[in-house]
Structure formats: structure tokens, C-alpha cells
Computed example of a mutant assay.
Amino acid sequence: MGLAYFAGFTNEFANAKTDDAVAEELEGLLLRQREQNNPDRSDALLQVIIANGAEKMEAADIVAEKMLVPLIRDDATIMGVIGFDRTIKETTYAPRSMTARLPWTCSSVSPTSPPQPGRLPARSAFRQQQPSCRSSKFGRVMPEGGKPAQAVDIVRGVNLHLVDAPEGLTRRARSFLRVHCLRVDSLQVDQHRERWLELGVPEAEIDRVAAYGTRWGGLALPPAPHYDGGPRILDPDTPEGSPAEGWWFEAGIQRTAVPYGFMIGPNGEFGIHGDRWVPLHSTVEGWVESVALAYHAGMWARKITKITGDDVDTLQLDDHAAVPEVAGLADTWWRGTDSLVAIYNGEAECMSAPRCRTAFIYSGLDHWGLHG
């Protein structure tokens, strides 16, 4: 099955807000595509078609008429079109050529857009047209003469929703999760419980993996500033270990090619496992808090300085206090009078490579930047 993403990609000048919004939407589509196309699943493969409406979507009507309509007509697997990333006359009129064929959703058609004959009036900033009878995992399309579904119905199956932040996090981290994170399907532990018991995994350890999956499973965080971004999605896997050594399980697959995996340790620590096991934070919450704090500090700092290797030892932290919510072990955060300092020792310890020690100094912070 197919889904077309329609946005403006070729801009003469960079526009951070628009470019970042498009990038986030593409990342969400990629996450869903990888989940859907998992070789262990028997569901239909998802293809994402990228349609370029040119600078400021000024060619949206032409691209729709000359390219998308023929493609949709010849390929019955295409179930919808999403995007339309700005309100101009071209994006207002472009869907008219498609509405007789399949559903579309858009996020930028304003209430002033002219209503289409026989279609939903433009009552909100998030509109949907559902004139056909196609259906897919993305939602049931309104049958002829039926009641229009809400816009969220067509994307409910994608499982890319704002996150209900778990309890026990700071306000900063809860806000970060709700604004920047997605949640997708993850491992269903109970489906593997019997097999894991046959492999000798203790029941208590399986329960621990299940608890992790319930609380964190499927959470897709933005890239962390170190460890090449951290896990792409928090998603557990088969426990490994022994009664003598303790048990570990995967926290989630790597976002990029790094020589270690992300693991949850015997006592619930979040860490990396390569040449050796190195716990970075004493809890998973600590990892999430550290990523949230990095984004917060990066937004409000007037200056960000990166130092590596032996230069990390030159940091003067006498007037700094440890940031408790990150629950730091190998990695720590420190709060000063107008700065935050993040120190990453995990890679250096894991690979016996002191040159990998890294620190970021976020300076010029006011009270909100320090504590918000």
C-alpha cells in the first residue's frame, strides 16, 4: 500500500521552521514505514511517495494534476495524500483534482479557504476530504453518502501520536515528550514469554522486560547529542545473561552504526554494552531526562562549547551542582550560576578510549534556561 507525502522541498532560501517541520514529518513517516515493513510481520508493505510542490508549494496544483492524479489513477494501492504544508491558492485548489479518487489530509488550509462543492466546509485548520471508498490500515474511508470521519481517524493506524508522558519525570521532560516524541508499536513480551522460559530466562526477568515495554516501549526520541543519537526507538528484546552475572536486555536498536548496543542493566540502569558494560544513568528516566535537558539547554544557551579528550579534565566545576534528575553514572550533568555542563564518559569507558570523552558547555543561561 502507498501513501503520498506532498510538500515543498526546493526552496531558494532556507526557512528553519518550514524545513524542520517537513523533516519531522518525514522522520515520522520513516518510523512508521520501518515498523510496517518489519520482515517479521505479515502486513502489507508500505511505500511512501514523495511529491515536491516546489518552492513555497507554488507548483502544488500542477504537480497534483500532472503527476499525482495519473499516479493515483494507475496505482490502486495508494491510499491517501498528506502534507500540503502551506496555505496559498495552489494548495487550496490542488486537492480538487484528487478528491474524486482518494482521501487527503492537510495541516495548512486555513478557515478562509473556499469550501468545495459537496465537500466539508473549511471549519478548522486541519481539514480532510474522504470522497472515495478505499480503505487501509490508515483508517476506514467514508463510503459514498456516509458520515465523514474525523481527520485523526485516517492516521490512527499509523501510531504516530503525541506521547502521554509517564509519571515520575520532570515538567521539562514531560513537555519534551509531548512535543517532540512519537510512540509506535513495540515488542509484545507476552507473545514471547513461553519461548523465553524455555530458554531459561527467569520469570522475574521477563516481567522486568514487560514492565519496560509497558512504560517505554515504542517511544521514539529525537537524536541525542552523543552516542550518535542513541536508540532510535525504545523497544526491548530477549534478555541475556545468567543468574550469577545478572540479566540485561536491549533498550532499543541503534540509530546509527556504533560499536555497542544500548542495554538495560540488572538493576534497571540505562547504558551501553560493547567491549564492556557501562551504565550511563541509573534509570531509564535519567536517559530521557538527559536528552530533554540537552534540547532545552541547546535552545536557550547563548553559546555552546564542545571539548573532548584530556581537555575535559580542565573543566572547573567547583561552583556547579550535579543535576539530580539525570541520575548520572558514567554521564553527568552539572548546573552552575549561568551554565549547564554535560559530560559524556560512556564511550571512553566502554572502548578504553580516553579521547572519546566529550563535554558540552551551555553558557549564557538565565533562570529559565537553567531550571525550566
Score class of each variant (00 low, 15 high):
211 A>V: 11
183 R>T: 13
147 K>G: 01
129 Q>V: 13
229 G>P: 13
166 P>N: 12
152 V>K: 11
215 R>F: 09
209 V>I: 06
129 Q>E: 10
189 V>S: 03
210 A>L: 09
127 R>M: 10
178 R>E: 15
137 K>P: 04
174 R>G: 14
126 F>D: 07
180 H>W: 13
156 R>S: 03
180 H>D: 14
170 T>W: 02
143 P>K: 01
146 G>W: 06
176 F>Q: 02
194 E>W: 03
200 G>S: 07
132 S>V: 05
188 Q>N: 13
151 A>L: 14
156 R>E: 02
189 V>P: 05
208 R>A: 10
216 W>V: 03
189 V>I: 15
190 D>Y: 05
186 S>V: 04
182 L>Q: 06
124 S>P: 00
205 E>I: 14
191 Q>H: 13
130 Q>E: 07
145 G>S: 04
127 R>N: 06
165 A>R: 04
157 G>E: 01
223 P>D: 00
202 P>A: 05
160 L>S: 01
153 D>V: 04
192 H>E: 15
146 G>E: 03
165 A>E: 13
216 W>Q: 05
158 V>Q: 15
160 L>Y: 12
136 S>G: 12
133 C>P: 02
144 E>Q: 12
165 A>C: 10
169 L>K: 08
124 S>W: 02
180 H>S: 13
222 P>D: 06
205 E>V: 15
124 S>L: 01
186 S>E: 03
147 K>Y: 01
148 P>N: 02
176 F>Y: 12
232 R>T: 08
216 W>F: 14
185 D>H: 04
167 E>A: 15
199 L>N: 09
214 T>V: 12
190 D>T: 14
193 R>K: 15
220 A>P: 07
